[in-house]
Each structure stands twice: as C-alpha cells, then as structure tokens.
Simulated assay, not measured.
Amino acid sequence: MTARYCSLAQQPAPAYPPGLAAERLGALACGRRMWVNGTVLHYCFFDGDSDASVITVPGTGRTRRVSWVGGEEQRDVVRACFREWQDLGIGIAFTEVGDRSEAELRIGFQAGDGSWSAVGKDALRIGLTERTMNFGWELAASGDRCTVLHEIGHALGMLHEHQSPFAGIHWDDEAVYAELAGPPNHWSRDRTYFNVLRKLESDEANGTVWDPQSIMEYPFPSGLVLEPEQYRGGLHPPGTLSAADKEFVLRWYPPTGPGGLLELVPFRSVPLGLGPGEQADLVIEPPETRDYTVGVFGEGDAVVVVFEEREGEPRFLAGRDDGGTPYNARLAARLVKGRRYVVRVRLYSSWGSGETAVMCW
C-alpha cells in the first residue's frame, strides 16, 4: 500500500530586491523561515463546534462541515512528539495553551485533508482562526509518531529531504505522478511536483549532504527512483530523528545558557560583533511607558524580534526582517515601565566591515 504523505501548500516565492549578491540571497533563503533562538512556541488544539472546514460532497453539490477537533489520544501523540524534539536540548521551547490567540501553532485533525504544517515563521502569516498544522488520519491507533515528528520538523523550519539538490535522485517522473494520483493520496500533478519532484535550491536544503534516514524523508516504494541504484527497490527511512536532524536543529537552535543578557538602554547603541547565522540577546527595562523604536544598524541583513516577559516566559511582541533591502531591520513597539523585554537579533549575512549594532530609542 502506498504511504500517506505530508502535503505542503505552495507558497509564493519571497521577493528580494534585484542585484543582491549570491551569498546574501542564499543566507536569506535559508534564514527567513527559521525562528530566532530562545523563542517559546505556544501550540493549541482546536476544540470547539465551530472549528471546522466546510467542504463540498463530491457528486452532490452539497456542503457539510468537517471538524478540526481530535480526540485526547490523538493529542497525546502530538504532545509526546513535541517533547521528543524539545528533549534534544534545543533552544526552542514548546508550551501548550488553551487560547488560540496566544498560539503560534494551531493544530487541527481534519480527516481527509492530509497532514501538513506551515514551515517555520510562515505560521505567523496565518490567521488566528486558521490551522497552521493538520493531521488528516488516525495517529493513536497506528502509533504514527513519524508523521507528527515530521510536521513538527516543518514547524521548526525544515524542508523535505528527498527534495535536497544533494540527494542526486533521478526519478521516473511519470511513475511518481501515477503513484501519487492514486489512493490514499489522490494528488494532482502540481501537488506531486511541489512536494516530491521539485528540487530545492542548495541554500534551502536542511544540510549539504543528503540524509536518507531523516525524519523529513518520505518512504517510497520500488519503481520510482532510478538513481541512485541502491534505492530502485524503494526508500525506507526508519521514521525517527536521525543524527543529521538533531545536528540541524541544534545548530540553528543551540541550548540557551543561564548567562546574563546584554542590557539595551535607550539611546545607547550596543555593538553586536555577530557572524552570519549568529544571534545576540539583549534585555530592555524601559524607564518610562511610551512607544519605542528598536533597530539594527550596519552592513548586514538581520531579523530583530522583541519579546515581553510574562511570568518569566517570553511572549512574542513584534518582529521585523529587513528582507535583504538596503534598509536595516527596525520596528516600533509600546513598552511599559516595570516590565521586562528581550530583544533577539539574528544576522543572516554581512558585507564590507560587517559591523552591526542595535539601539533602542
């Protein structure tokens, strides 16, 4: 029987200013989907009668509601998989909340809608009443942890491993289209191309070496892969987190140490001294309640995010990515005296002197 596959929705390609150097484009292509390290990702499960999709019943023209609500056993599988990722010691934390307005990740269980997830920060573009992740088949009865681990991998910013340009896979394209057009997936040619046959750019891939053991690798039956020859009989990943999966998330989200944060005082710039891919973490304790601007200066592409600490936990307040424009990342936020805010700056790329600084004013 053909495996049931994760089906990512096609997103518009990001628009970057023309004329950017290749190294800047590469850094932006990879980094734009990743969270800043130290983020607490809040997740919730849809649980109300109104949490449903309206679909058209084939052949009838009638519509009916299909619930997004999953049973407690289903939810427990998802909770356990969040813990498995977090137990790697990554600098990202997962916390379940009941209020969807506080959740970056909103999880549904609509049967027949496939399993999928927004990739990394793309979740922030999705409305609060909509799902950022769905599981379209029973998880608890089948013990299907690999699907859940896979979708959480997407939520952390990982992409499909079989689409890596370093895999060297030569497909029998028409055999792939035919396989995925049948049950249980029933995919269109466009969906199959986007999720299987399309090659990622080298800067988008999870690593510079193909990992056929990755949790982000699909299993494939025989007759679809022509090359490499050893996979003509099928590709069968174990469905667990591989060593390369762990290395990837620990590289992007290293453990956050107990050391103190740099202090960001209004009207005083703080030099960052960052290299590409590195991050600085600072704290603001505003002397008065008012609207503030937080900005990065220098010859670099960066993302800046401000969190407000609530009961010792950082909650996303505002973020800005300069997107490779000639202008540095800058955001405005209302900060309240007596509260504590954490500013996280991650550098994508730099040029010239490479010197960057951050200021609050």
Rank of each mutant, 00 (worst) to 15 (best):
I126Y: 10
M133W: 04
G59T: 10
Y16W: 13
E23I: 02
H42L: 00
L25A: 11
F46W: 02
C360H: 01
L224C: 13
V343I: 02
G143N: 15
L124H: 08
W361Q: 08
S115M: 06
L264H: 08
M216V: 06
G298K: 07
A243V: 15
P18L: 13
W171D: 00
V265T: 15
E161I: 04
G157A: 02
R189M: 14
P219R: 10
G112N: 08
S7K: 15
G153P: 12
D122K: 07
R106D: 05
R75T: 09
D47Q: 15
G91P: 03
L317Y: 09
D301T: 04
I152W: 13
T56M: 03
A140T: 07
G89M: 03
D321I: 03
V249Y: 15
P58R: 02
W361T: 01
V119A: 10
G275H: 14
G207A: 15
L25S: 06
R251F: 07
W137A: 07
V209I: 15
G354W: 06
A280C: 05
D99L: 07
P14C: 06
L20T: 10
A243K: 12
R62Q: 14
V40Q: 00
F220D: 03
L88V: 12
L335M: 03
D172I: 03
Q213C: 12
P14A: 12
L241F: 04
R100A: 06
V66D: 12
V119P: 05
I92R: 06
S222C: 09
E263Y: 10
D301L: 06
D321Q: 01
Q110F: 01
S214P: 11
R62L: 10
P228S: 11
P17D: 09
D321V: 00
E217M: 14
I284T: 02
T95L: 13
G207N: 14
V54H: 01
V296C: 12
Y253G: 01
S269L: 07
L156T: 11
C30Y: 08
L250F: 05
Q10I: 09
R100C: 12
E102C: 09
G234P: 06
E73W: 04
G352K: 08
L262F: 09
E229I: 04
R191G: 09
P287G: 08
M34G: 01
S349V: 07
L261W: 04
G323A: 04
D203M: 10
R125Q: 14
S202L: 04
V36D: 06
R24W: 12
L261V: 04
A13L: 13
G298E: 12
L159G: 14
Y327P: 01
T256G: 14
V36H: 01
P165V: 03
R189T: 02
T2W: 10
A175Q: 00
T60F: 06
R290D: 04
W252M: 07
Y193I: 08
S188P: 05
A332H: 05
G233E: 11
Y231K: 05
S214A: 13
P258M: 07
H154N: 08
M158V: 03
A333M: 00
F45Y: 14
L159K: 11
C360W: 03
E174H: 10
W68L: 04
P314Q: 01
H186Y: 14
L180H: 08
P228R: 06
V265I: 15
G98W: 02
T39E: 09
K337R: 15
H160I: 00
